[in-house]
């Protein structure tokens, strides 16, 4: 009887210690996971007044509408994802879409970014990217002065 009671007590004690250890390990683990996810501990910092207003935007990352990759504005064509993945990490895709260059000058631009702007070695993707760029963003001849286009006519009231 006494023996049994003693054994039961010991088991209860061990169970209690085990639970405490488990809870402790659990807390530590969640803390560590949190620190990994949010190294700046931003949740615990008071929100300072910021000049940046974050606008919620829900866009399917791969959505294509009328042949345009919506997220970046790039033309959908062979090589699109190689361009998205390698050319829009540092700068906006707008820097690509507003430019028009031939193969030689796109190549020179990539060389310049690799030499001075920390662009990585593109490997096999370089050819795919350059083909995409010269096919979809080639130079357009405008001559010495282009005709005015896109005029929105309106009545001028005095």
């Amino acid at each position: 009887m006494n023996e049994q009671e003693k054994f039961r007590k010991t088991v209860k004690e061990v169970h209690r210690i085990l639970m405490i250890v488990l809870v402790f390990v659990g807390v530590i683990t969640s803390l560590m996971v949190y620190i990994v996810v949010d190294p700046g501990l931003s949740l615990f910092k008071s929100k300072e007044k910021s000049d940046y207003a974050v606008v919620e935007e829900v866009v399917d990352e791969d959505l294509i509408v009328d042949g345009i990759h919506v997220r970046t504005g790039l033309i959908e064509a062979e090589g699109l994802m190689e361009v998205v993945n390698n050319c829009t990490n540092c700068h906006s895709a707008k820097l690509v879409t507003q430019n028009r260059m031939n193969k030689e000058r796109w190549e020179a631009t990539i060389d310049w970014m690799q030499a001075t702007q920390n662009l990585w070695d593109l490997g096999r993707n370089e050819e795919i990217i350059i083909n995409y760029l010269v096919t979809n963003y080639p130079p357009v001849k405008v001559g010495r002065r282009a005709t005015l286009t896109g005029i929105e006519w309106y009545e001028l009231k005095k």
Binding site: Q98, N99, P139, R144, R145
Partner: peptide, 11 residues
């Protein structure tokens, strides 16, 4: 934006 051939950079 008006140069031909186009020049690289913000247009």
């Amino acid at each position: 934006a008006e140069f031909d051939p186009p020049a690289k950079g913000n247009q």
